[in-house]
Design a protein around this nucleic acid. Structure first.
Lengths: 79, 79
DNA sequence: ATGTGACTCTAAGTCCGTT
DNA sequence: AAACGGACTTAGAGTCACA
């Protein structure tokens, strides 16, 4: 089980590193801004499809995001 | 947009390489067997959560599967 | 520029089968 | 062992008004 909060946290850190607003990112990804906002806060856990859209907007390979999630899990194992 | 058929194809190739049946794999992943069957046939596209479960059952990093999907997309671009 | 609640719609995921 | 189908429940996708 993958924590939705962790996924959101990883995605947000990528977004902030790019200096993008939620508005711009969600626009590029073709997602509704409020929907994206919920994903970042872990209120929704994205489908694989949505993850690919977000990665595309961030201009990074989707596998980078997934690998980052893996690392977070191994560093901070969930109970 | 990620083709569900492509995802299923990639996952299936990993499973066959491991010499596992759908029954064993879905059991390890904690998924319904018929549901997993549909994913392989591209009738369902898994959530990020389900992808992690499948990767765990395959004993490979989830990012490996995602990277494989990316490669397939770049090699055989979709119209 | 972001958070939130309240929706509808669609698909993921489960469970019962048969071929 | 796996494809295939039907009926069902749950949750994400997508949208809006408002703070």
């Amino acid at each position: 089980m993958v924590s939705a909060a962790l996924v959101g946290q990883v995605i947000q850190s990528y977004r902030l590193r790019k200096g993008m607003s939620q508005e711009v990112l969600s626009g590029l990804a073709g997602l509704d801004r409020t929907h994206y906002s919920k994903i970042e806060r872990g209120l929704r856990s994205p489908t694989l499809d949505t993850l690919f859209k977000i990665a595309q907007a961030l201009d990074i390979p989707p596998s980078d995001i997934v690998r980052q999630i893996e690392q977070q899990i191994s560093e901070y194992p969930e109970p």
